[in-house]
Design a binder for these strands. Structure first.
Length: 420
RNA sequence: GCCCCCAUCGACUAGCGGCCCAGGUCACAGCCCUUUCAAGGCUGCAGCGCGGGUUCGAAUCCCGCUGGGGGCACCA
C-alpha cells in the first residue's frame, strides 16, 4: 500500500514556522518511504482572503522545497459529499438531528484508543466524548467531520500533525468508524514553542516563513534546523543535506516533547550553510536576495564581493550593512577619524601600481611604521573612512575592490571631516 | 473546573537497566589567529525536577507530586 500523508493548514493566515515543521515531517516521511505528500486547504470556515493565504502557503512551501503531489484540494469543494455522508449516517441511525444540526452518536462506555506512532498507546474514556455536531444547521460540515472524511476520501494512511490535535483524534476515529473507513496511523508531534515557552502563534513576531526569507535565511538551513526540532538522526549529526534528511528520517525517531524555537542556533546553522556554498551559488543566492529586497545594486559588483564577505556573514540580511559601502557613499563618524593618518594614507596608496591587495597592504603597513603608530590605529581610521563603519570585511581587499578612485575620494572627504 | 500529553545542561537533543561520576550542537566564558569583526581553532562552564518504589544495579521501569504544554464550540 502506498503511503499517503497530507499537510492541511487552514487559510486563515500565513504559514507559521510551527506549521512548516509539521509540513516538513510529513514531506520527509513521504519522500523517505516513496509515498505521496498532499496539500489540502481546510477552508470549511468561509473566511475572507482565502485566496491570498492559500497562495502564501503554496509559495512558502515551494520556497522551502517541500513539493506536493497532485492538485491542491480544498475542503469547501467537498461540502456536498460531507452532506451526503452525514445524511447516510442519519439514515443508518448513527447520527441524529438536533435543532437543525446533525450530531453523531458517540459510545458512552469503554474507551477509544489508538497506537500513536510517536506516543504509543493513547486512550480516552468514551464518556468524555460528546455527541459531536458533524453538520451545522446551515449545512456546512464541522472540522472534526470534514477532516477525517477527507482523509478517507484521499486514502490518507498516516496523519502526522501537531500535539494540539490529540484530543480531536478519538472523535475523528469514531467518525471514521461510523463512515466505515479504515483508521490511518496517527503520529502526534510536540508543538514548537516560542522563546517564552508558549505555543508559537501569529502574536510571536517573526515566525512566518516569508519573514525568514526576507531576513536572508537559506531554505536549506531552515529545513535542516526545523528537522532537528523534535527529531534527530543520532547523538552527533547536526548538519544534513535535504537528501540526507530524506534518507534518514523515520517517525520512530520523532519525540513527543515540545521544542523551543531558537533563533541563535538557526543563525549559526544558516551561517554554516552560507559558508559551505560554492562562490557561484553564493553569488546567485546573494543577488537573488538583493533583488527580492528591492535593492537595485549592481549584480556584478555583488558577485565580486562574495569572496571577501562570505566568511563572516551569518545571514544575507546582514549584507546591506556589512557590504553596502561598495554600492553607496558613506558617512563616517568624525570622532573615529584621524586626519593626519588619512592624509598620509592617501599619499601612500595614490600611485600604487597595481592597485591590488598585497601592494595596498604593504603600503599601509609601512605607513604605520613611518608614522610610528600601531597598525590597528592606522587601519581602523582608514577602515572607518572607507567603509563608514568600524566593522567591515577585510580592509585591504575591500580597498582593492572599491578601487583607487573611490578610495582616495573617501579618504579625502573623511580627512576633511576629521579636521573640521 | 474537566480531559489529554510532556519532563536530560539556558536552548535543541543522544540515551530505550550496567558501555553514562551522562555524549553532540547552539549560546555563554577564556585563550589562540588577527587590520576591525559578526568567521575559524582550542579549552572550559553547565543537566538527568522532587519523593517513593522495582532491581544486584535506574537518566532509563512503576506510582505519586510538582512544573510546563495542549484541548474541552453549530472555530480550524
Amino acid at each position: 500500500m502506498t503511503v499517503k500523508v497530507r499537510f492541511a493548514p487552514s487559510p486563515t493566515g500565513f504559514l507559521h514556522i510551527g506549521g512548516v515543521r509539521t509540513a516538513l515531517f510529513n514531506w520527509l516521511y513521504a519522500r523517505h518511504v516513496g509515498g505521496e505528500f498532499h496539500l489540502r486547504i481546510e477552508n470549511t470556515d468561509t473566511g475572507r482572503e482565502v485566496a491570498e493565504a492559500t497562495e502564501q502557503i503554496k509559495e512558502s512551501l515551494a520556497w522551502l522545497g517541500l513539493d506536493w503531489d497532485g492538485e491542491v484540494t480544498f475542503q469547501l469543494d467537498r461540502m456536498e459529499r460531507c452532506q451526503v455522508e452525514a445524511r447516510r449516517l442519519l439514515e443508518e441511525g448513527k447520527a441524529y438531528e438536533d435543532e437543525g444540526a446533525i450530531r453523531i452518536r458517540m459510545p458512552d462506555e469503554g474507551v477509544t484508543g489508538w497506537d500513536d506512532a510517536v506516543r504509543g498507546r493513547l486512550e480516552v474514556a468514551n464518556d468524555t466524548l460528546d455527541d459531536l455536531i458533524i453538520l451545522r444547521s446551515d449545512g456546512r460540515p464541522t472540522y472534526n467531520f470534514a477532516s477525517p472524511l477527507e482523509d478517507w476520501l484521499d486514502g490518507i494512511t498516516h496523519v502526522i500533525r501537531g500535539d494540539d490535535h490529540v484530543s480531536n483524534t478519538p472523535k475523528q476515529i469514531r467518525v471514521l468508524e461510523a463512515l466505515g473507513a479504515d483508521i490511518p496511523v496517527y503520529a502526534h508531534v510536540g508543538n514548537v514553542l516560542g522563546t517564552d515557552g508558549k505555543k508559537l502563534s501569529k502574536r510571536h513576531g517573526a515566525v512566518g516563513v516569508d519573514e525568514f526569507r526576507r531576513e536572508g535565511y537559506l531554505p536549506e538551513a531552515l529545513v535542516n534546523y526545523l528537522a532537528l526540532l523534535g527529531w534527530s538522526y543520532d547523538d552527533r549529526t547536526t548538519i544534513m543535506s535535504r537528501q540526507e534528511l530524506v534518507e534518514r528520517f523515520t517517525i520512530e525517531r520523532v519525540i513527543a516533547r515540545p521544542a523551543t524555537f531558537d533563533y541563535e542556533k538557526l543563525e549559526w546553522m544558516n551561517g554554516a550553510y552560507l559558508r559551505a556554498l560554492e562562490p557561484n551559488a553564493y553569488a546567485g543566492a546573494l543577488t537573488t536576495f538583493l533583488g527580492e529586497q528591492g535593492l537595485d545594486w549592481d549584480d556584478e559588483l555583488a558577485r565580486r564581493t562574495v569572496p571577501i564577505v562570505r566568511e563572516k556573514l551569518v545571514k544575507l540580511g546582514r549584507y546591506p550593512e556589512y557590504a553596502g559601502f561598495f554600492f553607496h557613499d558613506v558617512t563616517p563618524d568624525a570622532k573615529l577619524l584621524d586626519g593626519l593618518v588619512l592624509a598620509a594614507a592617501e599619499g601612500a596608496i595614490a600611485s600604487l601600481d597595481p592597485f591590488e591587495t598585497p601592494e595596498i597592504e604593504q603600503a599601509l603597513r609601512s605607513l604605520s611604521d613611518s608614522l610610528g603608530l600601531k597598525p590597528r590605529q592606522v587601519f581602523q581610521s582608514i577602515r572607518v573612512a572607507v567603509t563608514g563603519t568600524n566593522v567591515s570585511p577585510s580592509l585591504f581587499e575591500s580597498i582593492e575592490l572599491l578601487g583607487r578612485e573611490k578610495t582616495l575620494e573617501r579618504l579625502r572627504s573623511a580627512a576633511a571631516l576629521a579636521d573640521a
